[in-house]
């Protein structure tokens, strides 16, 4: 079989065929798997939200352990009592508000456009949790998470995640030793919504001081840490009008 692979016409035909074959193969795989991927992502969101309000399977000081995917839907409807969409200090109930794209919602609200910020209210053991989604950027790519506060604006739990922070350094923001430090800190500094700062050298590595609005930074991950600080602050700023109505109640 002698094909002249040097001919220009052959090269062009080969390239065209390759693009068609590979393109349709990828499209076929992607659309075939889409429903399963979407469902996985929905479960993940539910797991993250529940994690932030302390519904998880953590044991001792081991790894992060979510509610299993098989149970997460039931647990989610059990613990999450209200799903709100916030616009300034106005709140409106909406089903599946947790599926709102937080990145777009925050960006739109920040630029003064339409504000449709999701906020979830959960209840566990008679306590109320206000769960605020956050979105920001780390060193390489996006970081996001959920922060849950009680009525007195004390942090009850956080969950952070990232798209591409360095494994072993910035990626550790989703490790328990980092996230657990936030518990008990307040997002208020006196009367202002300061959030919590990821601080280098705050001389409190065990995080015993819960009044300082600081948690200990990760060594080697300064920019990711600053990203977390900024993400909390920026996101809270947009929720402030609504949070104030909770405090004054």
């Amino acid at each position: 079989m002698a094909i002249d692979t040097e001919k220009n016409s052959y090269t062009v035909i080969f390239a065209v065929l390759m693009v068609i074959v590979v393109g349709s193969l990828l499209a076929f795989v992607a659309s075939g798997l889409k429903p399963m991927i979407d469902e996985n992502e929905r479960f993940e969101k539910q797991q993250n939200i529940l994690y932030a309000m302390g519904v998880n399977e953590n044991e001792g000081d081991g790894d992060v352990a979510f509610v299993p995917t098989t149970e997460v839907e039931d647990e989610f409807s059990k613990y999450i009592t209200q799903q709100l969409v916030i616009n300034g200090s106005q709140a409106e109930e909406r089903d599946n508000a947790y599926l709102i794209n937080v990145e777009k919602a925050l960006a739109s609200a920040k630029s003064g456009g339409e504000a449709e910020l999701p906020l979830l209210i959960g209840e566990k053991d008679g306590e109320k949790f206000y769960i605020i989604p956050m979105f920001g950027k780390g060193l390489w790519d996006a970081i996001w998470g959920y922060i849950s506060v009680g009525e007195n604006m004390e942090i009850k739990g956080v969950y952070f995640d990232h798209r591409g922070e360095t494994p072993g350094l910035g990626a550790n923001i989703k490790q328990r030793f980092f996230m657990d430090d936030f518990k008990g800190e307040s997002i208020m500094d006196g009367d202002t919504y300061e959030g919590v700062e990821v601080a280098k050298g705050n001389n409190d590595p065990l995080n015993n001081d819960k009044e300082d609005n600081q948690v200990d930074a990760l060594a080697g991950a300064t920019i990711t840490g600053n990203g977390v600080t900024a993400m909390i602050k920026e996101s809270l700023k947009l929720y402030k009008p609504y949070l104030q109505t909770i405090r004054s109640n």
């Binding site: 692979t5 040097e6 052959y10 080969f14 390239a15 590979v22 193969l25 990828l26 795989v29 798997l33």
Partner: peptide, 25 residues
């Protein structure tokens, strides 16, 4: 059957598609 002139591109396409398929699955 790979045309020598665009072989690097063909190689890239193979790696990239493999990686994407694995990622999706």
């Amino acid at each position: 059957i790979i045309p020598a002139k665009i072989r690097i591109i063909v190689q890239l396409v193979v790696v990239a598609s493999l990686v994407i398929i694995v990622d999706q699955v």
